[in-house]
Lab assay of single mutants.
Amino acid sequence: GIQEIVAMSPELDTYSITKRVKEVLTDNNLGQRLFGESILGLTQGSVSDLLSRPKPWHKLSLKGREPFVRMQLWLNDPHNVEKLRDMKK
């Protein structure tokens, strides 16, 4: 599951990941809330907090790293936007 992926993950640049996620969401007119609930399993508040103030990787616990790994996996998925759009319906 995701825990193994997080444990094996190389250090991620949390700042550039969140910046990229925000760009993709904005460009495709997708909400942070939808993204947070569907992709990260987080509430709106947690998501906007994460996206606006990402902590550096080395300061995060494994649990804290999980959303960033999920974001990275989502960014790597060529169908990420379509999938999210489908969830919106």
Score class of each variant (00 low, 15 high):
82 E>V: 11
71 M>A: 03
10 P>Q: 12
82 E>D: 12
60 L>A: 00
81 V>W: 04
21 V>L: 04
1 G>V: 08
54 P>W: 03
86 D>P: 11
83 K>E: 09
10 P>S: 11
10 P>Y: 07
54 P>L: 01
41 G>W: 00
80 N>H: 09
83 K>M: 08
43 T>W: 04
15 Y>W: 08
57 W>L: 01
85 R>I: 14
39 I>Y: 06
47 V>A: 09
7 A>P: 06
22 K>T: 08
89 K>Q: 06
12 L>V: 07
66 E>C: 03
17 I>W: 10
17 I>V: 15
72 Q>L: 08
38 S>V: 12
18 T>I: 11
33 R>Y: 06
76 N>A: 11
52 S>Q: 08
12 L>K: 05
50 L>Y: 02
27 D>E: 13
19 K>Y: 05
77 D>V: 03
53 R>H: 15
60 L>T: 00
6 V>L: 08
85 R>G: 08
8 M>E: 13
27 D>P: 03
33 R>D: 12
2 I>W: 06
55 K>Q: 10
77 D>N: 05
15 Y>L: 12
29 N>Y: 12
65 R>C: 02
8 M>R: 15
61 S>M: 05
53 R>S: 11
80 N>S: 13
39 I>P: 03
45 G>S: 12
11 E>I: 05
2 I>R: 06
63 K>Y: 04
63 K>F: 13
50 L>K: 06
41 G>P: 05
44 Q>R: 15
76 N>I: 05
25 L>I: 04
52 S>Y: 05
25 L>A: 01
24 V>L: 13
44 Q>F: 12
82 E>P: 10
36 G>R: 03
6 V>K: 09
53 R>I: 09
41 G>T: 04
27 D>C: 13
67 P>V: 06
25 L>H: 01
43 T>D: 14
13 D>Q: 00
66 E>F: 01
44 Q>L: 11
28 N>G: 05
89 K>Y: 09
69 V>C: 06
42 L>F: 05
13 D>S: 04
11 E>A: 12
45 G>K: 13
37 E>I: 11
43 T>H: 09
73 L>T: 12
49 D>S: 11
12 L>R: 04
47 V>H: 03
28 N>F: 14
54 P>S: 03
10 P>A: 09
35 F>G: 02
28 N>S: 05
61 S>Y: 00
20 R>Q: 13
23 E>Y: 07
69 V>L: 10
44 Q>A: 15
84 L>A: 03
89 K>I: 10
48 S>R: 14
41 G>Y: 02
18 T>K: 00
46 S>M: 13
18 T>D: 01
82 E>S: 11
6 V>T: 10
52 S>E: 13
59 K>Y: 09
42 L>M: 10
44 Q>E: 11
85 R>T: 14
86 D>H: 12
3 Q>R: 08
66 E>Y: 05
65 R>G: 02
68 F>D: 03
39 I>M: 00
58 H>P: 11
77 D>M: 04
16 S>G: 12
3 Q>N: 14
70 R>Q: 15
56 P>S: 11
52 S>V: 06
17 I>S: 00
38 S>P: 02
25 L>V: 00
83 K>Q: 06
47 V>M: 09
45 G>Q: 14
33 R>W: 06
89 K>P: 06
4 E>A: 11
80 N>G: 13
44 Q>Y: 12
76 N>Y: 05
10 P>M: 06
88 K>T: 09
37 E>W: 07
48 S>F: 10
47 V>R: 02
62 L>E: 13
78 P>Y: 06
37 E>G: 04
57 W>A: 00
77 D>H: 06
84 L>T: 04
23 E>N: 10
24 V>S: 03
33 R>K: 15
89 K>G: 09
36 G>K: 04
1 G>M: 08
45 G>C: 09
62 L>I: 15
15 Y>A: 10
27 D>T: 15
2 I>Q: 06
61 S>K: 04
79 H>W: 10
18 T>Q: 04
69 V>M: 11
89 K>L: 07
19 K>G: 05
6 V>P: 06
51 L>A: 01
52 S>T: 13
55 K>E: 15
76 N>W: 04
30 L>A: 02
78 P>Q: 07
43 T>L: 03
34 L>V: 07
38 S>W: 08
33 R>M: 10
70 R>Y: 00
11 E>K: 15
80 N>L: 06
32 Q>G: 05
11 E>R: 06
86 D>A: 14
33 R>V: 14
44 Q>H: 12
75 L>R: 02
26 T>H: 12
40 L>W: 04
16 S>A: 14
11 E>V: 13
60 L>Y: 11
63 K>A: 14
65 R>V: 00
44 Q>C: 12
19 K>V: 09
70 R>V: 09
45 G>R: 11
51 L>C: 00
41 G>A: 04
57 W>C: 02
45 G>E: 14
30 L>D: 00
9 S>W: 05
31 G>H: 09
6 V>A: 10
49 D>M: 15
26 T>S: 13
1 G>C: 12
18 T>G: 08
63 K>H: 15
63 K>M: 10
24 V>A: 08
7 A>K: 14
86 D>Y: 06
84 L>W: 03
55 K>P: 14
50 L>Q: 00
47 V>Y: 04
21 V>Y: 01
89 K>T: 10
79 H>Q: 14
86 D>R: 10
49 D>G: 06
72 Q>S: 08
51 L>Q: 01
74 W>Y: 04
79 H>E: 13
43 T>M: 06
